[in-house]
Design a protein around this nucleic acid. Structure first.
Lengths: 387, 387
DNA sequence: TTCATTTAGTTCACGTTGTAGACTAAATAT
DNA sequence: ATATTTAGTCTACAACGTGAACTAAATGAA
């Protein structure tokens, strides 16, 4: 239901409109802002003044010289006040990242360690140490951390990680084990990586991000917004059926994409013990490795065909392990997509590798907090005092 | 981008909030509206007054008797002023329907005729006659028709029907051939039927509506909103891959759902010349007919498994021809869904038959116009004149 | 019957916010 | 030097929601 609008909400929305316009449109003068927002110059002046006072916008030097008329003073997002904390638990590392409002990275750290089979308490304890370090650094820089988001690979709902096939965890509630002075939210790695690509990567407004890890997840971005389904569990690409009579899958079904293109399937078929080993074999041109990638690519192409038909995708970004395997996967995937989708849709979707690689998830996690501030800056802005 | 809010928009939003609260919450007094909207009694009184003057709300008799205190006067949506026109072109009939704001059907007509192979000009000419009749009746009832939406089965974009496999049409722009005194929009039958079920049928806020016609389409509703993908082409369930090595499909691929559960496949496998004939055979317990439905049901189950994994569905509504075939389809579909989804998701999605049957599309089409008025009543409301 | 109590709805002075246009400021062109 | 152009501020004003006082209409108790 739409909420009622009072004067307070009107102001809050207009602060958002101005801040958002600057965020998207680069440096803008007050006059230009009045133009693009449709608000009057007076209103924009007041709002910009308050946003500058709040430390969310900053004036840059005079914009545009050499033309007639008084030069305007452009404003840009300011990274001086608000920051956000992004956290990630992966199979073989923990990562934290502090982002300011402009998207600038103010702190980043990564601890390589094999989390497979480790108890949640132990892993989250280590993450807490890392996060505390990050918060201390943010504090030292004079930044106010507005919140934190933790990325995990596995289905998430209501603060609970239902299962993490890569870690061997089940029904963990990380917020209970992670004592931090800022609120911590939990979300799926594929979703957050998709948002990372949206905000700090390719910048397309519609795409499917495919996250190839132990399992295969996906994050769908439509019109610049994440689609996460009715209960937040959308994007389980790994269990899309590729061959109904195929091999049994851990989910209880048969012939799921994961049984062809999941990490375990890839390594077994490619006769490699680890992903780096598989990559080395591919570089060498090893037969089984090449065949494994080709088969995985074709299966991925079939699953993506179904996804394109259901979701109307015109761009697919391959992330996670698939980023590194992209040179060997893209051929078979594209072939299948072209053969199966060429008829109905004029052009098959564009396939690319992730731009951000392993950084996508923490960027998306911190970005989520950043974008929440951009979407509702009012709590950070004090009403200007009349003289 | 969020739009700037001026006084005018504030008022428009609050009109929407009040109207929407009444629309959802049944008869409500001004006092109750103040409670649920969070606006003050004075504001609600003004807005309700204007909405009543505009003919969008109507006062009913005194609400609640027998309790202490002055009884309030409840208001309800009024069907007296605004109406909407829903149009549908199907393989074997044309249908029109006039709906008022309350969802009341004010006029409905249906012409049985085989449109297969007919030229667009001829079919749309006949539809125009029917629509003109409907508009005349609306006029006679004193209703202002706010707009019309036309449902067609096939992919639609930007006012163009790209292809209609059931009619044999390609790249038709119906608005060019349909001269009506109200703006006519075009949309996909599956999407509109899904909206029909949302607003006037089951009333669930999250579900996938599956439209079984010559082809198989789907409309996804999430959180009470239609999801239509980046370019409006989402929901092509018919070309989800069910068996990669299966029979060739008209789309150029192989093993698409349509090759198992499309009308042509069903009739061929069931040894029937038409859907009524197939139904009769099923009622008789004919072997081939039963086998055809079982096979179609299993294929549908596999395609829906992929859809559930990607879209996070907890409710699936079978519509179109599948509504009538439901008794024979639901078993195999449910079996597959339970077997393949029981592991990951606690419970498989709930499967039901469409409640509205063949009426879903025109209801959704007209409903779309109705809901546009409900979502932005301001253009119909004149500012109250101060005394 | 009468009057207190309770709830509904209206009225009006007021506060908050955006608007419009006059005004000041700072650049280039003539 | 002066006109022109564009940026930004200032101020009277209008639109709309608020809040409290007020009127209206019911029930319940004396």
């Amino acid at each position: 239901m739409t909420q009622a609008v009072r004067h307070e909400e009107m102001r809050a929305r207009n602060l958002e409109v101005v801040l958002g316009a600057v965020g998207r449109g680069g440096p803008l003068t007050r006059a230009a802002l009045a133009e693009v927002t449709g608000l009057t110059k007076s209103t924009v002046s007041k709002l910009v003044g308050d946003l500058v006072d709040a430390g969310l916008l900053a004036e840059t030097g005079p914009a545009r010289a050499g033309e007639r008329g008084r030069p305007g003073v452009a404003v840009v997002l300011s990274g001086a006040r608000v920051a956000a904390l992004g956290l990630e638990i992966n199979v073989d590392y923990l990562a934290v990242r502090v982002l300011d409002l402009t998207g600038g990275v103010r702190f980043a750290a990564r601890r390589e360690r094999d989390n497979r089979g480790s108890r949640p308490k132990k892993v989250l304890g280590e993450l807490q140490t890392l996060a505390t370090e990050a918060l201390a650094e943010a504090h030292r820089l004079g930044l106010e951390v507005a919140g934190a988001v933790l990325a995990v690979s596995g289905p998430v709902g209501d603060g609970v990680l239902f299962s993490a096939p890569n870690l061997g965890w089940q029904d963990v509630r990380p917020a209970d084990l992670l004592r931090l002075p800022v609120p911590v939210e939990l979300d799926n790695e594929a979703n957050l990586a998709a948002l990372g690509e949206l905000w700090y990567g390719a910048g397309e407004r519609d795409f499917l991000y495919v996250s190839g890890e132990i399992g295969i997840g996906a994050g769908l971005v439509v019109g610049g917004t994440l689609f996460s389904g009715a209960t937040g569990l959308a994007g389980e690409l790994g269990h899309v059926v590729v061959a109904p009579e195929g091999a049994p899958c851990s989910c209880g079904g048969t012939g799921c994409l994961e049984t062809y293109a999941g990490q375990e399937a890839l390594l077994t078929a490619g006769k490699a013990a680890s992903v780096p080993e598989l990559l080395a074999a591919l570089e060498r041109g090893d037969g089984p490795a090449l065949a494994a990638c080709a088969a995985a690519g074709r299966a991925l192409g079939i699953a993506l065909t179904s996804a394109v038909n259901l979701l109307d995708l015109d761009r697919i970004v391959l992330g996670g392990v698939f980023t590194q395997l992209y040179p060997w996967l893209s051929g078979p995937v594209s072939e299948v997509l072209t053969a199966r989708l060429g008829g109905l849709r004029g052009t098959p979707p564009v396939l690319t590798a992730s731009r951000l690689g392993g950084d996508a998830a923490t960027l998306g996690a911190a970005g989520r907090v950043v974008h929440r501030v951009l979407a509702d800056p009012a709590p950070f802005v004090t009403r200007a005092q009349e003289a």
